[in-house]
């Protein structure tokens, strides 16, 4: 199951930089910029299912991969993604497992992640874009896109988890 999740997240990671960069509005000359953060959605959903050490490990390693391949310096995404995933992990442990909790976790997590990354970039001087401009044209479209695109990702991870979990339980009972 974990190998399947890693493969799924890797595919999302590769799509973010290649296919989505050609399809989203910024590739057609629009002022509005949608940042595809599918891996972030995936990590947030996974943080609601897996134990803590796996969540932190996944978040940190995918964040570091993002930094090496796409980012301006190491550590920004690795730290932010691990912190956000830990936050949603705590959120999931404080509430009963309803589907709308997943929605809330994704919206909150994406919001925190995008704002934090923008904050780090401003702090380290990787961008000089004013806050209000980047909020209206970058952050809001990003949140809308990622909240919608997170639904199929959630369905897929949920499906894999239920399937594998059931099989594991059956297997255990047979052995006993």
């Amino acid at each position: 199951m974990k190998k399947g999740f890693v493969a799924f997240l890797l595919i999302l990671f590769l799509l973010e930089g290649s296919v989505f960069q050609l399809l989203l509005p910024q590739a057609w000359g629009s002022t509005f910029v949608v940042i595809p953060q599918l891996v972030v959605s995936g990590i947030i959903v996974i943080s609601l299912y897996l134990p803590k050490r796996y969540v932190l490990m996944f978040a940190f390693s995918f964040g570091l991969l993002h930094d090496i391949v796409y980012g301006p310096a190491w550590g920004v995404t690795a730290f932010t993604l691990a912190a956000v995933a830990y936050g949603t992990y705590l959120l999931a442990n404080h509430f009963p497992p309803f589907v709308w909790i997943v929605g809330v976790a994704i919206v909150l997590g994406q919001c925190c992640y995008t704002l934090l990354v923008y904050g780090w970039y401003r702090l380290f001087g990787f961008t000089n874009m004013p806050f209000l401009f980047s909020f209206m044209t970058h952050i809001v479209p990003t949140l809308v896109f990622n909240a919608i695109s997170a639904y199929p990702i959630f369905r897929f991870i949920h499906y894999v988890y239920m399937k594998k979990r059931n099989r594991q339980v059956v297997f255990d009972t047979i052995i006993r």
């Binding site: 930089g17 290649s18 910029v33 970039y121 990787f126």
Partner: peptide, 12 residues
């Protein structure tokens, strides 16, 4: 060009 970074705050 083989890929592009995801956000537009820095451009690579």
């Amino acid at each position: 060009v083989v890929f592009r970074n995801t956000d537009r705050w820095h451009n690579k």
